[in-house]
């Protein structure tokens, strides 16, 4: 006969209470409990726990299903209108943002074109041209010359040194 002890009997007893023990094992358990009645006493304590739990759940007042359904139906309506409102708000926000961005782009382009038209393209280019007023050099006894080439419009810088040092220009 397979081994049976107190711990195993307890677990089988719990399963037997719930109708989850096979007939063969239930018979073995019965035989063990007859020989060890103090183990069987636990079954009464477990049944009492079940009774107390059922009594607790039954004693507590509950809403009627009709009253509960009224609450749930209201909650579903509120939840649905919240979702619709959020979707509408999101849609409006997207439209508003797109419109604002478009207006900004149009306004910026208009102002830029107007400025260029007023000042002339050359004036704009002139405004961005860098002017060289003088040139400093560390070469001893060197002279520098700066002028604008009339043909190309480029700024020419000359640095003149004595014959011993040679010439340098750019």
């Amino acid at each position: 006969m397979a081994f049976m002890n107190h711990k195993k009997a307890e677990r089988w007893m719990s399963r037997a209470m719930d109708g989850e023990l096979s007939p063969r094992r239930a018979a073995r358990l019965d035989a063990y409990l007859k020989a060890h009645p103090h183990v069987a006493e636990q079954r009464d304590a477990w049944k009492q726990s079940g009774d107390l739990l059922r009594a607790h759940c039954a004693a507590t007042p509950a809403q009627t299903p009709e009253a509960a359904w009224n609450d749930v139906r209201r909650a579903i309506r509120v939840a649905s209108s919240d979702v619709r409102e959020k979707q509408a708000l999101n849609g409006r926000m997207v439209w508003a943002s797109s419109l604002a961005a478009l207006l900004l782009l149009v306004a910026g382009t208009w102002f830029t074109l107007r400025y260029i038209a007023d000042q002339g393209f050359e004036a704009v280019a002139e405004a961005h041209r860098t002017e060289v007023e003088f040139v400093e050099t560390d070469l001893p006894d060197a002279m520098s010359m700066v002028y604008e080439d009339a043909e190309t419009g480029l700024t020419v810088i000359w640095v003149l040194v004595t014959e011993e040092q040679g010439h340098a220009g750019s």
């Binding site: 739990l53 759940c57 809403q63 359904w69 749930v72």
Partner: peptide, 15 residues
């Protein structure tokens, strides 16, 4: 559905 299962669901929750 809700009315049919309400008491069962409530029983689990109160337990």
């Amino acid at each position: 559905l809700m009315k049919a299962y309400h008491d069962k669901v409530y029983g689990i929750l109160i337990g």
